[in-house]
């Protein structure tokens, strides 16, 4: 089992990540990946990660802060934040991870229904958080995007596409995952 540290990453103005979400994410990651998930101490988002003009947080800067705060213990790291993420080239990302690497990051900002004009729905946020956590952790294990419509590893660029995915890997990705661990 590979230790996987779940790191809450509070961003000013976005509030804490609910414990229910962290628990659900830990559960699904242990179900799918050969990991032992454990909750870590929060790592605060550094002020320079915030782009005032965009009102968003830079995913590469947050990833760097995460890696700096957590010494390499041979395990993997997944930060969870409620801040809305971007990379300079794109208007937003749901999350980001080092392909085949140590650290990943997910945001629940766009997973919350009010972001798209719908009433709050906690169960829906939890379901979506599980999917995005599986997706970014898949990248940590070297998986790339998949074409299967409901696979968690499918690229989603809108919340509508996102909701077609299930919180599970398709058989092809599951087989690839096994192969990569050999």
């Amino acid at each position: 089992m590979i230790p996987l540290g779940l790191v809450p990453m509070p961003c000013p103005g976005s509030g804490e990540v609910p414990a229910m979400i962290l628990d659900a994410v830990a559960q699904v990651l242990e179900d799918v990946y050969p990991v032992q998930a454990g909750l870590r101490r929060p790592v605060a988002a550094p002020p320079e990660a915030f782009d005032a003009a965009r009102g968003q947080y830079s995913a590469p800067v947050l990833l760097k802060a995460l890696l700096d705060a957590c010494p390499d213990d041979g395990g993997k790291l997944l930060a969870v934040t409620r801040g809305d993420l971007y990379i300079p080239m794109l208007s937003f990302v749901f999350g980001q991870a080092q392909l085949g690497g140590r650290a990943g990051l997910i945001s629940t900002a766009r997973l919350e229904p009010p972001f798209s004009g719908f009433p709050p729905d906690e169960a829906l946020v939890i379901r979506r958080a599980r999917t995005v956590a599986l997706h970014e952790t898949g990248h940590l294990f070297g998986l790339v995007h998949c074409q299967t419509p409901d696979c968690a590893m499918r690229l989603a660029t809108t919340i509508q596409q996102f909701d077609r995915k299930r919180a599970a890997l398709c058989p092809d990705c599951a087989a690839l995952l096994l192969e990569k661990q050999r």
Partner: peptide
């Protein structure tokens, strides 16, 4: 650097 590296990482995730 951050521009090209983050874009490269995003496209690598796409395979």
């Amino acid at each position: 650097e951050v521009m090209r590296e983050s874009m490269a990482a995003w496209l690598r995730e796409d395979g």
